[in-house]
């Protein structure tokens, strides 16, 4: 038995018929084809599946697709616009905030939400805002750095973070 669901994903409306038991994360990945949202646990621990629902960070493995009916969902694919990276994306790139990149979409969504709520978080507030996300590669050092640097960029304090997707990040060194 399926049920209709109509919602907006990354600014685009869609309608589908889904089983009521289908998790939002599976709906996004397998029905909507947006595979940037990842799954890394069965128990809502890892945050790899974090998306925004009506602007609020939600673990999409803990919500049924039908519960998102009428809502506006933003996934990692919807964060950059017209080739311009979101400052959090740019900061993760600049600060080497990812290695394998599997946890990264969830972290970026959670951090983007954190900075929207609190544009200049203290170190403690960064930790509290992101402790629902797990990363096994980075030891979190550069993720913290990236969030701090995104916060500075968004408040216009930093130089050198343009927020633009540059063609090459290679900067040869004079020697």
């Amino acid at each position: 038995m399926t049920q209709p669901v109509a919602l907006t994903i990354n600014g685009r409306r869609r309608e589908d018929h889904v089983e009521p038991r289908l998790l939002l994360v599976h709906y996004l990945r397998e029905v909507a084809g947006l595979t940037g949202t990842h799954i890394a646990c069965d128990t809502s621990q890892c945050g790899a599946c974090t998306v925004l629902i009506d602007g609020e960070a939600v673990k999409s493995c803990s919500v049924f697709a039908v519960q998102a009916a009428g809502r506006e969902v933003t996934t990692i694919e919807g964060l950059a616009a017209d080739g311009i990276l979101h400052p959090v994306q740019q900061a993760f790139w600049n600060e080497h905030g990812l290695q394998c990149g599997f946890c990264t979409p969830g972290f970026i969504m959670a951090a983007a939400y954190l900075l929207k709520q609190n544009p200049s978080p203290t170190d403690d507030e960064i930790v509290r805002g992101l402790e629902g996300n797990l990363c096994r590669c980075t030891g979190y050092e550069n993720i913290k750095k990236a969030v701090r640097s995104a916060s500075e960029a968004m408040s216009g304090k930093a130089d050198g973070v343009s927020g633009e997707l540059v063609g090459s990040a290679a900067v040869p060194v004079e020697g």
Binding site: I76, F92, G101
Partner: peptide
Amino acid sequence: TSMIGARIQRREDPKLITGHGNF
């Protein structure tokens, strides 16, 4: 120029930070 030893940002990242990895 010397690339060896330089802090080069990763070319792996653009696809991974935008949700276009291929896991």
